[in-house]
């Protein structure tokens, strides 16, 4: 309890100030204070993005003018035009590649993981726990550790510089199996038992009883798989070589060449990379945040 006294002493100045304030106003002042702090931090979050957006509409020479002109006086679409109508850095192409990879990977992951999770959660078969332990074991091993054998494997399969090099390794993620299994376990067995008595096979139980019950979990898993794929950089960096097959992150990076650091174009590129995700995030905020709190998804 010594600690407590110390704390009391330390905090007494705070109490003194507090006592001086009229209790009626106390609540209001503390609320205002909280808002002030939250707004300042919120601005720290927002300002870099606003700067990016504003710079992307500026001529090269105006970008670094100080004080900052938040709303460009001579807005130009030149930067966007030059990156969209550029043969080498075609951002439309990059978008399509990222989208294709993210969608295929997410779909494949949902299908294979939800099925495997069903086997682990609802079916009995010899070696089940051992196999599951194997899954759990690889959970700890990040991509960074296995990227070398994976590169050699992908190379042996002649898939280097194809979208499959990015889709396949992510399509069977152990984490998806683990997460969905946890959710399946939460569904009472009575539900499926009843269906079984009605003569349903396992596939129907899986598709018609289990899956609809874990929709939020699947939505969360989809969102984060998609996001992770969309934002991933190291994998494309290793596996993708041709400009026409690059994803948005790798495309953005290669766009900054040794001899031309043109911040207007770079900011137009980053805007294009960031904006769709932010828009989707604001629309589907519920799934992002509640899903995240629900499942404690990996960072």
């Amino acid at each position: 309890m010594e600690n407590k006294d110390k704390v009391l002493q330390e905090e007494s100045w705070f109490e003194k100030i507090k006592e001086k304030i009229d209790p009626k106003h106390r609540k209001l002042i503390s609320k205002l204070l909280i808002h002030a702090i939250l707004i300042v931090i919120g601005l720290c979050m927002l300002i870099p993005f606003l700067w990016m957006l504003s710079a992307s509409f500026k001529e090269e020479l105006e970008i670094f003018k100080f004080p900052i002109e938040w709303i460009p006086s001579n807005p130009t679409l030149k930067n966007y035009a030059s990156i969209f109508f550029n043969e080498k850095y075609n951002f439309g192409r990059f978008y399509w590649n990222s989208l294709e990879i993210a969608i295929l990977m997410t779909l494949a992951q949902i299908v294979t993981c939800s099925m495997a999770a069903y086997a682990f959660a609802k079916l009995e078969f010899p070696g089940r726990d051992k196999i599951f332990l194997g899954y759990l074991g690889t959970l700890m091993v990040p991509f960074h550790v296995t990227m070398i054998p994976l590169f050699i494997l992908i190379k042996a399969m002649k898939l280097v510089d194809t979208p499959w090099a990015l889709i396949l390794p992510g399509a069977f993620d152990a984490y998806g199996v683990f997460l969905l299994r946890q959710f399946y376990l939460g569904i009472p067995n009575e539900l499926s038992e009843a269906a079984k008595i009605d003569g349903c096979g396992h596939f129907r139980i899986y598709a018609q009883i289990i899956l609809p019950n874990v929709k939020p979990a699947i939505a969360t898993l989809s969102i984060f798989t998609f996001l992770w794929s969309w934002n991933n950089f190291l994998k494309p960096l290793i596996f993708i070589n041709s400009p026409e097959k690059m994803t948005i992150t790798l495309g953005l990076k290669t766009f900054v060449s040794e001899y031309n650091v043109e911040f207007g174009k770079i900011m137009a590129g980053t805007t294009l990379a960031v904006l769709p995700v932010i828009i989707v995030f604001f629309i589907a905020q519920r799934y992002f945040i509640e899903g995240l709190a629900l499942s404690g998804i990996k960072g």
Binding site: P243, K253, S257
Partner: peptide
């Protein structure tokens, strides 16, 4: 076609 980017890249 060669990749764009820095010489190192």
């Amino acid at each position: 076609p060669a990749l764009q980017g820095t010489n190192q890249e």
